[in-house]
Design a binder for these strands. Sequence first.
DNA 1: CGTTAGCATGAATCAGCGC
DNA 2: CGCGCTGATTCATGCTAAC
Lengths: 388, 388
Amino acid sequence: MASVFPLADLKASVKPDSRPGSRSDSSPASWVDTIIKGDCVSALEALPSHSVDIIFADPPYNLQLGGTLHRPDQSLVDAVDDEWDQFASFEAYDAFTRAWLLACRRVLKPTGSIWVIGSYHNIFRVGATLQDLNFWILNDIIWRKTNPMPNFKGRRFQNAHETMIWASPSAKAKGYTFNYDALKAANDDVQMRSDWLFPICNGAERLKGEDGKKAHPTQKPEALLARVIMASTKPGDIVLDPFFGSGTTGAVAKRLGRHFVGIEREQDYIDAASARIAAVEPLGKAELTVMTGKKAEVRVAFNVLVESRLIKPGQVLTDAKRRYSAIVRADGTVASGGEAGSIHRLGAKVQGLDACNGWTFWHFEDGQSLRPIDDLRSVIRSDLAKAE
Amino acid sequence: MASVFPLADLKASVKPDSRPGSRSDSSPASWVDTIIKGDCVSALEALPSHSVDIIFADPPYNLQLGGTLHRPDQSLVDAVDDEWDQFASFEAYDAFTRAWLLACRRVLKPTGSIWVIGSYHNIFRVGATLQDLNFWILNDIIWRKTNPMPNFKGRRFQNAHETMIWASPSAKAKGYTFNYDALKAANDDVQMRSDWLFPICNGAERLKGEDGKKAHPTQKPEALLARVIMASTKPGDIVLDPFFGSGTTGAVAKRLGRHFVGIEREQDYIDAASARIAAVEPLGKAELTVMTGKKAEVRVAFNVLVESRLIKPGQVLTDAKRRYSAIVRADGTVASGGEAGSIHRLGAKVQGLDACNGWTFWHFEDGQSLRPIDDLRSVIRSDLAKAE
DNA sequence: CGTTAGCATGAATCAGCGC
DNA sequence: CGCGCTGATTCATGCTAAC
């Protein structure tokens, strides 16, 4: 795990027609669970198309900080106070952003999604570029820091958050993973909001060099990555991080039973990340089972209830308040007045609505009480479960 | 107060060499404390250069809404489908943004600053354009909504915030007002953070038409404007709002002893704003010193414990008498037998009850003893206390 | 008059599949 | 790609009507 994969070897090893490791693939490609050493864009271009499930990117923010300014290639911009050069530097940053995002798009599956984190120095340029490239923004997520650095000069508000953008590769790409039900259940049964509260990475979690100094300047907290990965991937998915740094993405992905691919230029970071990831113990299957809702359940159609005699032809169904009633027919349709149709269509029609979920609208008599016909599907489902 | 100032009159009345009403000017110019009817850019161009102290702008968000959206109860969501929010493309939106920002820059004093509010639909384009025009971003501020609209389809995170950008006219313009000490004193003696918590505008504060419908689709809460104005202006300053709408900026500015200038195209909005502002009673000098901020309620969900590794996936929870047990999963749900769900749902299910407080029901091993998982929230809350 | 149940609503880029 | 069908999906708050 976490072996280092030199870019040259990768180029030699990847077969153009090879399908990469996916959810159902038991033998993942050789570049999976490795750190690729090299430039972000070149490394991305060496990976197969549509091969990763999500991308988490923490690109450089180094924009107009202090008196010096670095270009994406790390060369120094000398005259920051020159108006033209400032404009040029934004252009350079935009070109860099465009290049790596384009390379990411090719590597990302159509059913995938991308996360990018940044601060006000760069996130507006990243967001605009994402839109220009026809990525489709799903949410912007605010990481609220419990313990941000104070503003020392007292000339601004304390900069207490960072922004993440979550996007799918296009407006029409709706196949992205979002574990809504698990997130809601984990959040005390209310849906997860777009503002998240986490401490910054400090203490034992923070990687230190031999000199005791922090190994990486912007190491992200594992809790943040854990929520990102739990929200938008399934176990076995491949998570790509094109700015791998200290390897938080890889460490959390491994712990959570996902595959990772990291891209990183600097050998020191690669060494630190490799050792870190090697020490991670993955969780077992039981712990990684993701809670799903009704959408993921086996489909049981209404006629199955009729055929199995849980509902009998001629039986009367009503709504919860007994304002409307309908008669069940042997073919699995229901009729009321002169109208007939599916439980959904008829439910909509009697209420004068465009749509209706017949499963929760229609009820049947059960002794003294009324129960939704949806309750009967669980009977069928438990029989199906025993049959397996 | 709040008289309507037709654009034609304004053009005639403004003397090019006149110095506008400023902090020390006892006879403000005629366009101060008026609503100018007309197009945003044209009206701005008719105002004198360097004449206003701050600008608060709530431009169209360029929402790109597809069809209709229904709530789970089949009622229709009243979306923002107004003509003024429609743009043909990102390019068109960018050109519009550039035009009004350039016009704003000329009108803004070198010692002034500008606020722009938006959502992920437009804020990245606004931020990038601000930077392109050499505005200097001071902070991005997150308005966290206490009561945002839910996500009805369960396909994204609940969109629970909007973003404001606060910028000075150039990197060298350091003369902007920032009432650091007042903000800190109002915030229990810790510096004001970049994430603010406020309810959306509803109830009595929300302007209604004669038909009882909302007068403006996107009226902002006065509390939000109050913090903006208290943070970045002095009494007597002139606050310009180029997208005046229902006039929240003017109402709050008047109440807080500041002057306002509004620009608005639609007569209905001008009428509503004029009446609103006329009814505002300005505060006395004594009240204009300290404002208190609303604090966040401390809610800690179960997944926060899992993400922060206080509770680990795979760990066994039991009730106080060890009659029931459950296993923690990485997604923040718990499982027991074939059942799984939130700590509350599963607690109820194993006991055969309708409801259960999972926080006090489930316990974890702590050395020799069992402790309720609720105890672990205090660890998180001590971090939280620092954050708010 | 007080309490409660029910309903309305807010800047929303909000479904998935089979034919 | 479009159409049609199945059937899944909401949090906080304030106002009104009912009790």
